[in-house]
Amino acid sequence: MKTVFDRPAALSDVPLHYCPGCTHGIIHRLVAEAIDELGIAGQTIGVASVGCSVFSYNYFECDMVQAAHGRAPAVATGIKRTHPDNFVFTYQGDGDLAAIGTAETVHSATRGENITIIFVNNAIYGMTGGQMAPTTLPGQVTTTSPYGRDRSIQGNPIRVCEMLSTLDGVALAARVSVDSPKNVMQAKKMILKAFKNQEEKKGLSIVEILSTCPTNWGVSPEKALDWVRSDMIPYYPLGVYKDVDATEGGAAK
């Protein structure tokens, strides 16, 4: 019988700890597929961050390093600078990347580190139990914004791809979603490109993936996907915010 669907080799054969309906599983799979398609598992070093994806070091069949909260891009810099011919990626959530690790994110981007950042934006702190994130939407209820995020008190959400796309060191900044088969295909395309860019030493590539958190949003998995479409995408429009292939002849400045 012909196998038409299987676990990617770069995805470990262990149960994931993620909640039912969470899209981390899809995103892990897409990253593993990209690693398989490029045949680079033996040359790849992943950096796990702090948050729900803290255990991602158990899920990818490549060498992994677990970093402190927010510091994954700095750790990745240290790995990549000492191993320029290896592939290095970070897998970070919104709290990790856009709050505590903002400086590390921005500066690794502007330096043009040849790394790939997989940025999972689900507008909430999942691991600690549903607190407000830097990407929590205006009005969104979390345990630390129980009356809804009030911009006059808690400030505004941060649009990471838009911000990073202004930096010369960035080769690719794209926002995708995994709420539909079509969007999953597009997400895969961008993740693949983000890894390929390392081969060609084009600069930093970040793929922001809008993700769900049914548990902490307090909705069913299906409703969670609806909410991505109805609320998240309008605030965080999908698209390619920067691609040096299209605009700058192939390499970040």
Partner: peptide
């Protein structure tokens, strides 16, 4: 903070 984490990345590899 970044410097020590870069150091960690280099050491880890």
């Amino acid at each position: 903070v970044a410097a020590i984490n870069m150091t960690m990345g280099a050491a880890a590899s």
